[in-house]
Write a protein that binds this DNA or RNA. Structure first.
Lengths: 342, 342
DNA sequence: TTGTAAGCGTTATCAT
DNA sequence: ATGATAACGCTTACAA
């Protein structure tokens, strides 16, 4: 009822008030000030609920990420927010860690107009059956993938990320070049495409260098510090103990380095460690961590931009430019890597 | 138009469909199945925008925090989400770091129905003038404070936090008990009430032990690793170099320990370090960090519960139970602290 | 430049 | 147990 009240007080119609709010240039100067006074007088604030309803738009975007409090996401989110603010979107965050969410839940949010689009920064369970059925009738919701590689069913959505395979190969290659031949790999969770790709890169580099990947050299670190510590212990106990360990991300590298030192070994003299992400803690670790940096903020910015595009342009067809945007990675050499022992 | 379509297909009125959706028990079994079939047939999903509009409720809550990617907030958010999911709220996150936000902006979000309430986990600029004016006419929005101490203008809102003064005093007291007499303090940003309180606790403990706080022993660390590194360098260069440093949070402690070791000194043999928060990295630091733990998840849960209460119970009066809920803190002793040298 | 009025999809009131 | 219908606050043709 509020715009009506303003209109009444200003002595104009509701349409004029609305116009004043949305395109003031269409309103005569004189009227403008009358309306503004009325607004001030009653302390009017437009009801976003009504406006969004009318417009059929939530101006909300869901960002799905593995875990808030992941230092790496900090910069990604910064990029996302920059664009969101600029484009008038608010960010709804869902993490896949505290509650188990599945893909349908997010598409459902769009279909039921709780959000206009989805920014997927985490691996999640694939479409369930009912959804598969629906997708025949409904268009795909506006959805963009960031960071992660994709499962086949998500292939049709735009995505922005580094080339995880190549990046991990680079990291591994760097270790090889330092003379390491026994290199272990600490992977993430089995359902994480991302770390899967990194593992692929590791294996690729090993193969290329004609190095064998022994059974037990690739172990799951569960994307957590504790998981990485357990994984590291297994690696250290291996009869062919690696002289270098590649961790699928920095978070796990933190645990790995800790556990190596715990075992009375030195980094990098006894074992070299490489991480992935270049989180802000990497630099102040002891020793500072050699890792692979991603342009996090840029990734955030670009994913969000594509998403806005997808939202504005309506649901995108299966055959809209669908190739992933690949952004450059960069090996950052610090002190956690050194020549192979002996 | 959609509920209409369902109604038409099911051969019932829109009212019945609505009832089926919201209180199925009021609908006869027979009708229920007719409606459900119709829903399945057209793939109907209720329009949340319309529903919220009609109900005058967004079912959204803004959580304002200093920085996503703060590992400490991870657990707080977990607690918030648990309650949010349970109560049917979605979480809108705003960080005060990437964009400068002020208090009005958030109250405005409530007044303009972009959100139902505010969960404030960060220090922000105080009310601006126009808001002060408005607050006379409008009730305060549902708002709950977590973690932080409050400025006087926010005094009337419920809050949940540890007793930062007492906690910091405990940490300081522990150092004193180890024989330290020259103890430095690395504070946060000047506008952070939270670290301000911690500083107060530190000073209190020093005073109580009749220890002097030399000029230059309290230095700002800006709540960042780099800030803490600079602060630490200043501390190390002090003519009366402290034998122990209390950092207002773990994030800064990370930088502090790094910088101490950089300078060729040992922790804790030369300098002891205490942090605050017990983030997950504290345990795997080298040496593992002595710190003060807060029940983060519980704080999240309780703040969110109070907020829901405030939303449901309508805007709370100035004189609703307004005393902060204090949750217990706990000193976690690890290896970064030791007896004072000599 | 401004006003009139229809309509967005739901819920809720009041009958039936 | 169900139906008819007003109302929520706003935007937008269309008319003036």
């Amino acid at each position: 009822m509020s715009i009506k009240k303003v209109a009444r007080i200003a002595g104009v119609s509701t349409a004029t008030v609305s116009r004043y709010l949305n395109s003031p240039e269409q309103v005569k100067e004189n009227t403008r000030s009358k309306v503004q006074s009325a607004i001030d007088e009653v302390g009017y604030a437009p009801n976003a609920l009504a406006r969004n309803f009318r417009r059929g738009k939530t101006s909300l975007v869901v960002v799905v990420l593995p875990q808030v409090g992941d230092p790496f996401l900090d910069n990604v989110m910064r990029g996302i927010w920059r664009v969101a603010d600029e484009q008038g979107y608010s960010i709804l965050i869902r993490d896949t860690q505290s509650n188990s969410h599945d893909f349908d839940e997010f598409t459902e949010m769009v279909f039921s107009k709780q959000a206009d689009g989805i920014l997927l920064l985490a691996s999640i369970s694939p479409f369930s059956e009912p959804e598969a059925k629906r997708s025949r009738e409904k268009a795909h919701p506006p959805l963009v993938l960031g960071l992660e590689s994709v499962t086949t069913e998500l292939n049709h959505f735009p995505s922005v990320r580094v080339d995880n395979v190549a990046a991990a190969a680079d990291g591994t290659q760097y270790l090889i070049q330092l003379g390491h031949e026994r290199i272990g790999f600490i992977a993430g969770k089995p359902d994480s495409l991302l770390t899967h790709d990194r593992e692929k890169g590791y294996r690729k580099a090993m193969r290329k260098a004609k190095l064998k990947v022994e059974n037990g050299w690739v172990v799951e670190g569960e994307q957590t510090i504790d998981g990485a510590r357990r994984a590291t212990r297994r690696l250290l106990a291996h009869k062919q103990r690696p002289t270098a360990i590649f961790c699928a991300n920095d978070e796990m590298a933190l645990g790995t380095v800790h556990e190596i030192k715990n075992a009375g070994l030195r980094v990098p003299e006894d074992i070299s460690v490489v991480g992935f992400d270049d989180i802000r803690y990497a630099e102040v670790m002891d020793p500072p961590l050699t890792t692979i940096a991603q342009p996090a903020e840029e990734i955030g910015e670009r994913t969000m931009r594509r998403l806005v595009q997808a939202i504005d342009g309506g649901a995108l067809d299966k055959d809209t430019d669908t190739s992933p945007e690949i952004v450059p990675h960069k090996l950052i050499v610090r002190k956690s890597t050194g020549n192979a022992p002996r």
